[in-house]
Each structure stands twice: as structure tokens, then as C-alpha cells.
């Protein structure tokens, strides 16, 4: 019977502990923070990665000789169109935020001009055609007056994952190529790598 009592006490203590820790779920806490704050919650690709890639690529693309060479030869700023940036990683990554960041930075510092990509361009062309019928002739956009792009920016995101039970090392390799549309010459290759080690705890309360 003593054994039984001891067993009951042990079980009771476990039950109380389970109850205490099991019920101690934290309520949701929301804290506002600067968009520049580095956040790493799940270990997946996030806004911090997109920002790092954009910053590194902008710095790289502006420091290479293709820009001065083009300006010297053409006596104007280059016009760039964004092509496909393919996600070849093992995560569903939206590539548009860092491409958008690059576009913004390059337009705002006046080094490069961008023309709209194919999806937007189709809509604009449709609108321009409709203007020829419906808009005042004086205000209708002219046909055949689009700015032709000199270069196309395209690239890919590849990820490599090495994992063992509970730990994962992920390397994202971001490649961007700037291709001369007339000659198909690749004038710039940008490459950035981001490596993360994600360790999952085996136990928690």
C-alpha cells in the first residue's frame, strides 16, 4: 500500500506540473518595430533577406564599369527592363520586393531608367490603343513612342539545404544578370549569398 501511496504522490505532482506549465500559454504581444529591424522567426526567407540582397546588389551594380561605359558611348542613361527572376529554391519566395527595391534605388539616384515589365506593359499598350478611339486626340498617348530598353535584368534564386535531425543549414544564392538586349552580351553579374543555420529545439515546456 505504501508503494501505491508513493505512486499516487508522484502522479499527482506530475499532473500538477503538467497543469501549471500546460496552462501557462502566453497571450499575444504585439510590438511595433522599425522596418529595418532584423527579424528571424521561422528561418525562412523574409523581408530582412530581401533588404540585404537589394542593398548588396545595388552597391554592386553601381560600382561596376558597365554603367560608365554605356554613358560614355551613348551619352545618356541606360534604360533597363526587369525580366524573369526565377525562384529555383525550396521555398516559395516572392522575388518582387528586392527587385522593386533595386528599381527604386536606381531610379531615385538618377543612374538608370526603367521601363515597365511585360505584364504591366501589356496593360499599358491596351490602354494606349483604347485611348486612340476614346480619348481626345490632343491628349491621347502616341503609338510607337515607347522607350526601348537597352538592358534586361534577369536572374534566379537557388537554395541549398543541408539538414540533420533538428538542424538545417540553408544557403540562398541570388544571381542577377544584366544583358545587353542588342548584343546579348552579359555586362554585369551580381551574386549574393545568404546562409542561415536553423536549429530546432527538441523540447520545450
Amino acid at each position: 500500500m505504501d508503494k501505491h501511496k508513493r505512486l499516487i504522490v508522484v502522479l499527482f505532482v506530475i499532473a500538477v506540473l503538467a497543469l501549471l506549465f500546460g496552462c501557462a500559454t502566453p497571450s499575444r504581444v504585439v510590438t511595433r518595430t522599425s522596418p529595418d529591424t532584423q527579424t528571424d522567426l521561422s528561418g525562412r526567407w523574409n523581408d530582412t533577406d530581401a533588404r540585404i540582397v537589394a542593398e548588396e546588389m545595388i552597391h554592386d551594380v553601381l560600382s561596376r564599369p558597365w554603367l560608365q561605359r554605356f554613358e560614355r558611348n551613348a551619352l545618356r542613361r541606360p534604360v533597363v527592363i526587369v525580366g524573369d527572376v526565377r525562384n529555383m529554391s525550396s521555398e516559395h519566395i516572392d522575388t518582387s520586393p528586392f527587385i522593386r527595391s533595386m528599381e527604386r534605388e536606381l531610379i531615385n539616384n538618377g543612374t538608370v531608367r526603367f521601363v515597365a515589365g511585360d505584364a504591366v506593359r501589356e496593360k499599358i499598350r491596351q490602354e494606349r490603343l483604347e485611348q486612340q478611339v476614346h480619348a481626345d486626340e490632343a491628349t491621347a498617348a502616341r503609338l510607337g513612342a515607347e522607350t526601348g530598353a537597352d538592358f534586361m535584368l534577369q536572374g534566379s534564386i537557388v537554395s541549398m539545404t543541408d539538414a540533420v535531425d533538428g538542424t538545417r543549414a540553408v544557403t540562398y544564392i541570388i544571381n542577377l544578370d544584366l544583358i545587353d538586349i542588342e548584343t546579348t552580351e552579359i555586362v554585369w553579374i551580381g551574386n549574393t549569398e545568404i546562409k542561415k543555420i536553423i536549429e530546432l529545439q527538441r523540447y520545450s515546456w
Partner: peptide
Amino acid sequence: EMLIEDYYTRSVSQAAASLL
């Protein structure tokens, strides 16, 4: 899929409750 990854971390309190 995300939950499966999250639940890699086993809860000790749940384990205790499961024993009881």
C-alpha cells in the same frame, strides 16, 4: 507543413499530461 515543423519541438508539459 509549418505546424509539423513547429511541432518538432515536443512539449514536456504535454508529454507529462499524456503519461497521466
